[in-house]
Design a protein around this nucleic acid. Structure first.
Lengths: 336, 336
DNA sequence: CCATTTATTGACAACGTTGTCAAATACTAG
DNA sequence: CTAGTATTTGACAACGTTGTCAATAAATGG
C-alpha cells in the first residue's frame, strides 16, 4: 500500500506538504498543490484512516450490535436508518450480529471496544428486555427495540400501546362495536401493550371491554407459523352469540390466516368483516385482497432516532416511544 | 483511553513487557506476568486494534457492500453467513448499505479502502447484473447474488435452474402431467432461469412443453404485491380445456394469492391441486394450510461460500452456483 | 537593494502498538 | 565463587498520519 511518504518522494516535497494537500490546507502554493495531486493520482494514494485515527483519537466507527436484527424481515430497516444518520456525520457502522451467543455478546463488545468505537447501538429484533453488559457504559450507548431493567441507557422502543390504540380506533371509526382481538403470545411485550391500547380505544369510545373477544393466536410453545391456533381463535370468536364484526389481528400472518378462515365460511373481508393488523409485512399485507390495513413498526425511524441521540448528547437517559405508522389499505373499510 | 504505557507505569515495568503479557509471550516471569495482569485489570486496559494494525499492516476488517440486502426479508442471512465465517478467521465486517445511491457506491468503496479492508464482498438483494467499480479490483473481492458482465470477479449466485427443476420434479414425482407455472416478471433473471429448470424437468420426464401453461404473475410495471395479476393468471390456467393439476408459483406471495383463488372456486390445495413455490418466506409458507412446499434461497450458504472463497485464495475467478434447499411441507402432495 | 512582513515548506515529535536486538538478571556447573 | 549459559527485561525504531514550530522563500515597502 502506498503511503504519504512515497507520494512526497514522487512529487519532490516533504511528506508534510502532501498531508496538507490531502487535508485541503489553504497554505500551499497552487503550483505545489497541483504537483502533489498529480503524484497522488499517479500512485493511486489513499490516506490510511487507522493512522489518522491514531493521531486524533477518533475511530469514526460506531458499533452496531444486533440481536438477530438482520434476519428478521424489514428489521434491517433499523440498520439502514442508523446508517443514514451515521453517514451524515461521516461515521461508519461496524455491525456484529450476535445470534444466541453463536458469537458471544461479550466477544462482540470486546471486539468493538478494541476498535475504539465512538458509540454503541444495541438493537434487538423484537421488543424485549435485555441485560446490558457493564462494558457498554464505557462508551455512549443506546438501546433500540429493547430495554434494560435498570434504566441505565437511552432507549428507543416502538409505541405498542399507540399501535394497539390506532388499530382499534380505525375500526371504531367505522362504527364497529364488537371488535375481536387475536393476540400474540403473551410472553411478548407487544402482546400486552397492544391489548392495552385496544382497551384504551374502547374505553374512549365508551364501549365495555369484553374478555370473550380476546383470543390468543399462538400457544406459548408454538412453532413460528403454525396455523392451527389462528384457525381455532377465529372459530371461537365467530361462535360467540354476539359475533364480532371486526378483528384486530396480532400480526399480518394472523390476518392472512384469518382471511382464509373467513373465506371458508363464505365471509369476505371488506364486505362482511373488517380487519386491521400489525407489522406491514410487505410480502403479505399488499398482496391480500382487499389490501391489509396494518400498523408498520418504525424500524427505520428508530434507527435514525437512536443515531441522532448519539450525536446530540444533550438529552440523556430517556426512554423514547417511537410511533408506528398507520398503513391504510382497504381491509378496515366495509363497502356495501 | 488507557494505553499500554500507563499499564506499564502502574505495574512498574517497561511497556514492552506489558505488550508481551498481552500477547501471551511465554518469555515473561510468572511473577511479573501476574503483576501486569493485575494492572491491566485495575486500569481496565484494552489493546488498541488500530495501533496494532499499523504495525502489522492488517486491518482485520472485511468490507460488506450491500445493495439493499438487509432490507430484503431473510436476505440478511447472507450477512449472517458471511459474518460467521469471517469471525472464525477473527475478522469483522464493516457493512455499508448503498440503496440507489443514497450513499453513493463510490463513497462506500472509498471509505472501505481508506480503512484498509482486507477484502470486499458485494452483495445484491436480488440476483442481477451489476457494474463492478474498478477500485474493487485493488483488493480481493467477490460478488454475491449478482454478477458482472465481464467476469472479472469470483461470483456466487443461486442456482435458479436447479430450483426450477426441483420445484417441478416434486410435482412430476407425484404423477402430475399438466403443471402450470406462474412466472415472475421476465426482466428478472430468476424468472428466466426457473422456467428453464421447469422445462428441463418436463423434458426429462418425457412430457411435452406447453406454452399455454406458462402465465406471467406480475405485469412488467406492477407494484410489489398487486394481487390482480395472479388472480388473472390463475383464472387463465383454470380455464384451459386440459386443466393443470399442479402449479409452480414464482414466489410465495403468488402461492398465497393462488391459494385464495383456489379457495374461491372450492378447490383445495392438497386435495384437488398441488403447489410448489420459491423463497420460503417464513412469514407465509409455514402459515398456509397446507404448509407450502417451497425452494429456499441459499442466502446463508452464499454468505458463507463467499467468505470462504476470500480466505482460500486458491480457486479464483469462478462462478459458483449455490443450490436452493427444498423445503418440503405438504402442498406438493395430494392425499385422497 | 535592504529590511520587513507574509506565504510556503519542512523537521520532528507524537499517537499505541510490535519487532529487533542488546542489556540485565537469574540459574547452572565446575 | 566464577564463568558461562539461559532467562527475563528494556531501549529504540518503525508503522502512517497530524500538530507544533522553526526555517526558508517570496512579496512588500521604503
Amino acid at each position: 500500500m502506498v503511503s504519504i511518504k512515497q507520494v512526497a518522494k514522487q512529487a519532490g516535497v516533504s511528506f508534510k506538504t502532501v498531508s496538507r494537500v490531502v487535508n485541503n490546507d489553504p497554505n500551499v502554493r497552487e503550483e505545489t498543490r497541483a504537483r502533489v495531486q498529480e503524484a497522488i493520482a499517479a500512485l493511486n494514494y489513499r490516506p490510511n484512516r487507522a493512522a489518522r485515527m491514531m493521531r486524533n483519537q477518533q475511530s469514526g466507527v460506531i458499533g452496531f450490535i444486533s440481536d438477530e436484527v438482520v434476519t428478521q424481515p424489514y428489521a434491517g430497516d433499523l440498520l439502514i436508518g442508523a446508517q443514514e444518520v451515521a453517514s451524515q456525520h461521516d461515521k461508519v457502522l461496524m455491525v456484529v450480529n450476535i445470534e444466541n451467543d453463536r458469537i458471544g455478546r461479550q466477544r462482540a463488545i470486546d471486539m468493538l471496544l478494541e476498535r475504539r468505537v465512538e458509540a454503541l447501538v444495541y438493537a434487538s429484533y423484537y421488543h424485549k428486555e435485555v441485560q446490558v453488559p457493564q462494558e457498554m457504559l464505557q462508551v455512549p450507548s443506546v438501546l433500540v427495540n429493547c430495554y434494560a431493567e435498570n434504566e441505565t441507557l437511552t432507549t428507543f422502543i416502538p409505541d405498542e400501546v399507540q399501535a394497539g390504540y390506532d388499530a382499534t380506533r380505525l375500526l371504531l371509526e367505522q362504527g364497529h362495536k364488537r371488535i375481536g382481538h387475536i393476540t400474540l403470545n403473551p410472553d411478548i411485550i407487544a402482546a400486552v401493550k397492544r391489548l392495552e391500547g385496544y382497551r384504551e380505544a374502547l374505553a374512549e369510545a365508551g364501549i365495555a371491554y369484553d374478555p370473550q373477544l380476546i383470543v390468543q393466536g399462538e400457544s406459548r410453545f408454538d412453532e413460528a407459523g403454525d396455523s392451527a391456533s389462528v384457525e381455532k381463535a377465529v372459530a371461537e370468536l365467530l361462535k360467540l352469540t354476539h359475533q364480532p364484526t371486526a378483528f384486530v389481528c396480532g400480526k399480518d400472518e394472523f390476518a392472512m390466516q384469518a382471511y382464509f378462515e373467513f373465506a371458508k365460511r363464505g365471509l369476505q373481508v371488506g364486505r362482511d368483516i373488517a380487519v386491521t393488523s400489525f407489522d406491514n409485512q410487505r410480502m403479505i399485507a399488499p398482496g391480500l385482497s382487499p389490501g391489509l390495513t396494518t400498523m408498520a413498526l418504525p424500524h427505520f425511524e428508530m434507527g435514525q432516532a437512536a443515531m441522532n441521540s448519539i450525536f446530540n448528547q444533550g438529552d440523556d437517559m430517556v426512554t423514547r416511544l417511537i410511533p408506528f405508522s398507520v398503513i391504510e389499505r382497504q381491509s378496515h373499510l366495509l363497502k356495501n
